[in-house]
Structure formats: C-alpha cells, structure tokens
C-alpha cells in the first residue's frame, strides 16, 4: 500500500519503508505506464528527432520574425505549437467536453499555421 506508506513516512512519525536490498530497485511499477501515455511521449521524442534530422539537412533553423514580432526558429515554433495544442485541448474539454478528436483536428491546423506564420 504505497499510500499508507507515504502517509506514515511523510506526515507521521515512523515512516518505515519496507525493507529492501540495495539493488532491489522498483523503478517502473509506480510510474503506472499505459500505452496511451507512452505513445504520447514517444510522439514528443519523435518530434525532437525529426527536428534533429531536419536541422542536419537544412541547418540554421530557418530563423525569421513572425507575426508575433518575435525572432523564432523551427524549435521555437515546435514549442509554441505543442504548448498551444495543450491549451486548445484543455479549452475544448472545459467548454465542450465531448468529441475531443475535433480539438485534435484544430490542433493540426494550428500546427500548420504556426509553422507558416509565427
């Protein structure tokens, strides 16, 4: 029971975690991986890899001054797109609530716009 253990350890007095050998690591079960979240992180990793390959074939990151008046490179645009997508999804969940895939489609459009104009 990780939670009672946590409670005792943090806010109680004793906090005896169960005895383990030094090399008896339990690294992954508590992280509670699911294929959905794992694929999300793989997607992020892929994005970064694509950026690296892109950089290799056309170095410099294509810097320019976009509509926001900021000097941006490809990496900045990726960041703006990803952060923006997070907010689009959250806004959709908060305001509409169902059919989240529509938000995903909006995000794809948003990606294109950001990479073109920002």
């Amino acid at each position: 029971m990780i939670f009672t253990k946590l409670y005792a350890a943090t806010w109680g007095d004793v906090g005896k975690a169960k005895e383990k050998g030094f090399f008896d690591f339990d690294l992954f079960s508590w992280m509670a991986w699911t294929w959905q979240t794992a694929s999300f992180f793989i997607f992020i990793a892929l994005c970064i890899t694509v950026m690296l390959i892109w950089e290799k074939y056309s170095p410099g990151g294509n810097p320019r001054k976009g509509i926001l008046g900021l000097d941006t490179t490809r990496g900045d645009r990726l960041f703006v797109s990803l952060l923006g997508s997070a907010f689009i999804h959250l806004a959709w969940l908060g305001l509409v609530g169902s059919m989240l895939w529509i938000a995903t489609i909006i995000c794809v459009a948003y990606f294109v716009i950001v990479f073109k104009y920002v």
């Binding site: 990780i2 079960s29 992280m31 509670a32 991986w33 979240t37 999300f40 992180f41 989240l100």
Partner: peptide, 23 residues
C-alpha cells in the same frame, strides 16, 4: 513529470493498481 502525466489519466486503488480513466 512523466509520472504526473501517467497518473492524470488513471484512477488508483492503492498498491500500484491503476485503471484507465481517459480525460
């Protein structure tokens, strides 16, 4: 951070038992 993301989509029953809850 990854752990937080993982937890945010699941329900927990203690003892490292988790169930998918979506959004």
């Amino acid at each position: 951070l990854m752990t937080v993301v993982n937890y945010s989509f699941q329900e927990t029953f203690g003892n490292n038992v988790f169930a998918w809850e979506g959004t």
